[in-house]
Structure formats: structure tokens, C-alpha cells
């Protein structure tokens, strides 16, 4: 029986990336925490209905579970959104749109991956046209597992994300910006020639100056 104790292959790549990030910004200042506290009270969600998980977003927003009491509300366009919710499996066709939307969001931005399909492919583990591990293509800040996770679980996931933001911790968008080449290589591997245009991210290379 094969037991995996260490990561292997690209899994190690990912862990190395995350470790270096964690050490660099381990401490956060008072201003960071104040800003984080203000930010965590208001999350605008771009609920891109990518997969079947989108069905759970509606009860989350409506009267029964009422996510608005946590300051979570929908946003019509990526420009106004803070959180991108990937609701379930991602077909390659959708991935392209999701990447485009994510790159059009304004920093700070967060990604919540919903359901097991976004973690390891779930029931589509051997499908030819869905991606298996979302984290290879977009930096995920919070996973909510289940198939599908109920709205309570979603709320808990959002609350955990809010705590993370409130602590002023660095989030996925920094990882994305610093490792853009790695992410783009992964994306190119599955999308091939069909990549979204590069003008939405090529300023990352310029060191982020306007």
C-alpha cells in the first residue's frame, strides 16, 4: 500500500510558495488590523454561477439565511466585487471566464471555493474537461467542502474568511501576483491557445506602479 507522507510533484511547489509567504508577513501592524477590521465587515460577492453549487447561493442571500446581516451582499460586476465564489466544478470553458473576471476584480480580492469539485475534482475526478485542483489556477483563500455545502457551511466559511481578513493576513491575491508566471503556466497547460488576453495582469510584472 502506498502511503504518502510527503508531498510530491507540483504539490510541493504549492507548499513552498505558501510557506515563504507566511513567514514574510507574519506580523501585522495596528493600521493593518484596523483596515482589515473595516474590510471584513463588508464583502461584495461576485456569485459567478459556475457549477451546481450556485444553487446554494440563493438561500444564502435570501430571507432564510440572510447573509446580508454579515455584510455579505451580491455585486453585479467584477469591478465592484471583493469575493469571487467558485461554486462547484469548473469546466475549461468556464475557467477562462473565471480567470478573466478574477483579474478584473480590484485588490484586495478573495476567492472562496465551494464544494469538493473545486478541491480535487469531486465526482468529476476523471472528466476530460473540468479542472481538478482550482488552486493551481487561481489562489483560493477559503475552501468550503461538501457536495454541496449547505448555506450554514457557507456562512461559516465566510465568517472564517472575515476573521482572516480582520487579522490583516495576506491573502491569495498577493500570492497570485507574486507567482503569476507559475499560475499562467498552469492555466496555459489546460487552456492552450485559448487563454484570456494578458492585458489584465501584465502590469504585475511592472512592480505594480501606476
Amino acid at each position: 500500500m502506498y502511503h504518502k507522507s510527503e508531498c510530491e510533484g507540483f504539490q510541493c511547489e504549492q507548499r513552498m510558495l505558501e510557506e515563504s509567504l507566511g513567514q514574510e508577513n507574519a506580523q501585522t501592524g495596528l493600521v493593518d488590523r484596523l483596515v482589515g477590521w473595516l474590510r471584513q465587515r463588508s464583502l461584495f460577492v461576485l456569485a459567478y454561477g459556475t457549477g451546481c453549487g450556485a444553487i446554494e447561493m440563493r438561500p444564502l442571500m435570501t430571507s432564510r439565511f440572510d447573509a446580508e446581516r454579515f455584510g455579505i451582499i451580491g455585486a453585479p460586476t467584477p469591478r465592484q466585487a471583493d469575493v469571487l465564489v467558485i461554486s462547484g466544478y469548473l469546466a475549461l470553458k468556464t475557467l477562462k471566464r473565471v480567470i478573466r473576471s478574477y483579474e478584473q476584480m480590484q485588490e484586495p480580492k478573495y476567492v472562496i471555493a465551494l464544494g469538493s469539485c473545486a478541491i480535487n475534482g469531486g465526482m468529476y475526478w476523471d472528466s476530460y474537461n473540468t479542472i481538478k485542483q482550482l488552486d493551481h489556477y487561481l489562489p483560493v483563500d477559503m475552501y468550503i467542502n461538501g457536495c454541496m455545502p449547505r448555506p450554514e457551511a457557507l456562512i461559516e466559511g465566510f465568517a472564517a474568511l472575515q476573521k482572516k481578513i480582520g487579522r490583516g493576513e495576506p491573502s491569495g491575491f498577493k500570492r497570485y501576483r507574486e507567482n503569476i508566471d507559475w499560475y499562467k503556466a498552469n492555466q496555459r497547460r489546460v487552456l492552450g491557445e485559448n487563454m484570456p488576453p494578458d492585458y489584465t495582469y501584465d502590469w504585475y510584472h511592472a512592480g505594480g506602479v501606476a
Partner: peptide
């Protein structure tokens, strides 16, 4: 609508959140 609704300060938080965004296009 029989919900609890956000706090009275929610619009302030929303506004501050946007004013504190780091990226503007």
C-alpha cells in the same frame, strides 16, 4: 422581508471598504 438585516453602520463599512481598496483601475 423577515430577515435580521445588516447593522446600522453597514453603509459606512461598505463605503470605507471601497475607499480602502488598494487597487483602482
Amino acid at each position: 422581508q423577515r430577515r435580521w438585516g445588516p447593522s446600522l453602520w453597514q453603509n459606512f463599512f461598505d463605503n470605507m471598504k471601497f475607499l480602502l481598496k488598494t487597487e483602482t483601475l
